[in-house]
Measured scan of single mutants.
Amino acid sequence: KTSLNPNDLGPLPPGWEERIHLDGRTFYIDHNSKITQWEDPRLQNPAITGP
């Protein structure tokens, strides 16, 4: 199984920011909706992941 390299996905969507949590995990901030999440928003785009 090959793992996706986030660098291959291009930039984050407008308004998003990638940060490192105190425990070392990466999380994502959506400044548009004022939410945070652990999942990379680029992986949730149907145009990238397919049907």
Score class of each variant (00 low, 15 high):
1 K>P: 01
1 K>M: 05
1 K>H: 01
1 K>V: 00
1 K>A: 01
1 K>W: 00
2 T>A: 08
2 T>N: 15
2 T>P: 05
2 T>F: 15
3 S>A: 04
3 S>R: 05
3 S>E: 05
4 L>C: 07
4 L>T: 06
4 L>K: 15
4 L>W: 06
4 L>M: 12
5 N>Y: 07
6 P>F: 10
6 P>R: 14
6 P>C: 14
6 P>K: 15
6 P>N: 15
7 N>V: 10
7 N>P: 12
7 N>G: 13
7 N>A: 13
7 N>M: 13
7 N>W: 04
8 D>S: 10
8 D>Q: 08
8 D>L: 06
8 D>F: 06
9 L>V: 05
10 G>T: 10
10 G>I: 03
10 G>A: 11
10 G>P: 05
10 G>F: 01
11 P>M: 07
12 L>K: 03
12 L>D: 01
12 L>E: 03
12 L>V: 02
13 P>I: 00
13 P>L: 01
13 P>D: 06
13 P>G: 03
13 P>N: 04
13 P>T: 00
13 P>S: 02
13 P>K: 03
14 P>Y: 12
14 P>V: 10
14 P>C: 11
14 P>S: 12
14 P>H: 09
14 P>F: 12
15 G>E: 04
15 G>P: 04
15 G>S: 05
15 G>R: 03
15 G>Q: 06
16 W>S: 04
16 W>K: 06
16 W>Q: 05
16 W>A: 05
16 W>G: 08
16 W>F: 06
16 W>N: 08
17 E>Y: 00
17 E>V: 04
17 E>W: 00
17 E>M: 01
17 E>L: 00
17 E>D: 02
18 E>G: 03
18 E>Y: 04
18 E>Q: 13
18 E>N: 00
19 R>H: 04
19 R>F: 06
19 R>L: 05
20 I>V: 15
20 I>L: 13
20 I>S: 14
20 I>C: 15
21 H>P: 02
21 H>S: 15
21 H>D: 15
21 H>I: 04
22 L>F: 07
22 L>S: 15
22 L>A: 15
22 L>M: 14
22 L>Y: 14
22 L>T: 15
22 L>N: 07
23 D>V: 00
23 D>M: 03
23 D>Q: 07
23 D>I: 01
23 D>L: 03
23 D>P: 04
23 D>E: 02
23 D>H: 02
23 D>W: 01
24 G>I: 00
24 G>W: 00
24 G>Q: 01
24 G>P: 00
24 G>E: 01
25 R>A: 06
25 R>L: 02
25 R>P: 03
26 T>Y: 11
26 T>K: 14
26 T>G: 03
26 T>H: 15
27 F>E: 15
27 F>V: 08
28 Y>A: 04
28 Y>M: 00
28 Y>C: 00
28 Y>T: 02
28 Y>R: 03
28 Y>Q: 04
29 I>M: 10
29 I>N: 05
29 I>A: 06
29 I>D: 04
29 I>C: 10
30 D>Y: 05
30 D>L: 02
30 D>W: 02
30 D>E: 07
31 H>P: 05
31 H>V: 11
31 H>E: 07
31 H>I: 13
32 N>Q: 09
32 N>F: 05
32 N>P: 02
32 N>Y: 07
33 S>E: 12
33 S>C: 10
33 S>T: 14
33 S>M: 06
33 S>N: 13
33 S>P: 02
33 S>R: 14
33 S>I: 04
33 S>W: 01
34 K>T: 08
34 K>L: 06
34 K>G: 13
34 K>D: 12
34 K>R: 10
35 I>H: 14
35 I>C: 13
35 I>Y: 06
36 T>Y: 03
36 T>N: 04
36 T>S: 13
37 Q>A: 04
37 Q>T: 15
37 Q>H: 14
37 Q>I: 01
37 Q>V: 05
37 Q>G: 01
37 Q>W: 03
37 Q>Y: 06
38 W>T: 14
38 W>K: 13
38 W>L: 09
38 W>Y: 12
38 W>I: 09
38 W>S: 12
39 E>F: 04
39 E>M: 07
40 D>P: 04
40 D>C: 02
40 D>Y: 03
41 P>K: 00
41 P>S: 01
41 P>A: 00
41 P>H: 00
41 P>Q: 00
41 P>L: 01
42 R>W: 00
42 R>I: 00
42 R>E: 01
42 R>C: 01
43 L>M: 09
43 L>G: 11
43 L>R: 10
44 Q>L: 10
44 Q>A: 13
44 Q>K: 15
44 Q>G: 13
44 Q>E: 14
44 Q>Y: 06
45 N>V: 11
45 N>L: 11
45 N>T: 13
45 N>D: 08
45 N>Y: 09
45 N>E: 12
45 N>F: 02
46 P>I: 09
46 P>E: 05
46 P>R: 13
47 A>T: 12
47 A>S: 12
47 A>I: 09
47 A>Q: 15
47 A>F: 08
47 A>V: 12
47 A>H: 15
48 I>Q: 15
48 I>T: 14
48 I>E: 09
49 T>K: 07
49 T>G: 12
49 T>W: 08
49 T>M: 11
49 T>A: 10
49 T>R: 12
49 T>D: 11
49 T>V: 08
50 G>K: 15
50 G>A: 14
51 P>C: 07
